[in-house]
């Protein structure tokens, strides 16, 4: 019997090694697997590469992971200057790669989809293209981008069954389905546990084949 449920955050984050690339979904706090992120802080892995839409606001779990010095490199679409991430960056204590948000999503989609590279017009005529391969395609400069795969993805779901089939609420979805497909180990937290077969097959948003572990959380 396939049963992907784990009983604790410790079990959910077991085996995440130092140096891992961690894909953390969420747009602001919405759709962010906060319990799993707290679990990662407890678990102790360090020298991490964190992929997340932003460097987070002060007081957030993301900011806590960063200020604890556990992240070597942050890959994100923006960092606020007045934030822990911004201050760590300016102090030379955090490497940051800023990627346009759509390119960030597409690089992870490519990783999950087996696309080894792609060209995009986004940022091709900006400073982001300096020193990189730009090619004119259909009369337009386009920038070569490579996939962004994770060792671990931390997913925030609304409902899950024991196969790991997931649904999301409203804008909770954001990066979650893309990141779930782009990591070697995909761990989901869910507000609700449902019986296998309870989710209408047409309504499953992330099929369980992309999910390895599921943790039931409250809230």
């Amino acid at each position: 019997m396939i049963d992907k449920f784990v009983r604790s955050t410790a079990e959910a984050l077991d085996g995440v090694p130092d140096g891992a690339t961690v894909l953390l979904a969420g747009f602001g706090d919405v759709g962010m697997a906060t319990a799993l992120l707290e679990g990662l802080i407890e678990q102790g892995a360090k020298d991490l590469v964190l992929v997340c839409n932003s460097g987070g606001r002060d007081g957030s779990a993301v900011a806590r992971l960063l200020t604890l010095g556990r992240v070597r490199k942050l890959i994100c679409s923006f960092v606020r200057a007045a934030s822990d991430a911004g201050r760590l960056l300016l102090a030379g204590r955090l490497e940051v790669e800023v990627v346009p948000q759509g390119t960030l999503a597409e690089r992870m989609r490519a990783a999950g989809a087996g696309i080894p590279a792609f060209y995009t017009p986004t940022g091709a005529d900006t400073v982001l293209a300096e020193g990189r391969e730009v090619r004119e395609i259909a009369g337009r400069p386009c920038l070569l981008e490579y996939p962004l795969a994770g060792d671990v993805a931390l997913i925030d779901a609304w409902q899950a069954d024991r196969w790991g089939n997931l649904t999301y609420r409203e804008t909770q979805r954001n990066f979650n389905p893309v990141m779930a497909m782009a990591a070697k180990l995909t761990v989901a937290q869910t507000r609700h546990v449902v019986d296998l077969g309870a989710l209408a097959p047409e309504h499953v948003m992330t099929p369980g084949i992309f999910v390895n572990r599921v943790l039931h959380v409250s809230g």
Binding site: G86, L89, L90, T103, P121, T122
Partner: peptide
């Protein structure tokens, strides 16, 4: 500034070109 270390791109570049 072109090489401002704290960058706030977000979705602007994707939105602007498409």
């Amino acid at each position: 500034a072109a090489h401002e270390p704290v960058k706030q791109i977000g979705g602007a570049m994707d939105l602007a070109i498409g």
